[in-house]
Amino acid sequence: MIPAGFEYHRPADLTSAIGILQEHGDEARVVAGGHSLIPMMKLRMAELGHLIDLQDIDAMKGIAVGGDTVTIGAMTTQHELIVHDGLGAALPILREAALQIADPQVRYVGTIGGNVANGDPGNDMPGLMQCLNARFDLTGPDGSRQVAARDFYEAAYFTAREDEEILTAIIIPIPAPGTGSAYIKQKRKIGDYATAAAAVLVGDGTASVAMTNLADTPIWSEAAGAALAAGDIDGCAAAMLGAIDPQEDMRGPVAFKKHVAAVVLRRAIDSALSRRS
């Protein structure tokens, strides 16, 4: 559990960070909260020459709640999401999900940016961001661009982010007033990834549904959302079950995961519907 040697960088601004990425190419990785990367380094499953710590870049921190959107700096911790004054009212599902990530110690350090950028299928935020139709700000040597969360995830640990880009912020549209939402996660214990988790938004004739850790990417199903928007819960569940592709692991066999996925999804739908106004 001892990582191989590496150079540690702690730039104070984004330009410097990108410069270091450019200089060292795929020898370099950025680290936010480090809860995914550092264990991989300790296991020597990730070996890299240069670690770029982003924690001194103030421009990547903070939460701005606007009229139509919420903008969250990538280096904002899960804890900051939970305790923020206006965020809970604008996006109650974000707080609900953040409270189900790991434990308080992890949430004090773990960031939303690290959670969405790493492409780990176990992370909770990617599926939620797809449900909310969030966009990610990516900044590289040639400037900034935005990528929709629904287009970002390609495979486990593979995303639309280029090697020399840094995910700097997350822009989330605020759902229409009266929209009901719920994030339900089944896990084995505190600190575990989901056996199955569902993010559900239900508004007036609209719906969005995404699930986590049931494929090598988060699964947002347009058909499932459309069915739910039309009030067809069975159709929503059927569409989602058709889209997921869970693998057997220590959490259980495929049949169990599919069964639990349907149960968790239906419970999230029930909860979201009950919160609609």
């Binding site: 434990d103 084995r188 214990k189 505190i190 600190g191 220590m250």
Partner: peptide, 27 residues
């Protein structure tokens, strides 16, 4: 939930606290 598991190749499947169950105060 707590167990030491090997697969048929003798690979140890529960060598971290992710998969080896130790209850927190929550559980």
């Amino acid at each position: 939930g707590q167990e030491i598991v090997y697969d048929d190749m003798g690979n140890h499947k529960t060598a971290t606290l992710m998969d080896f169950f130790v209850p927190t105060s929550w559980e």
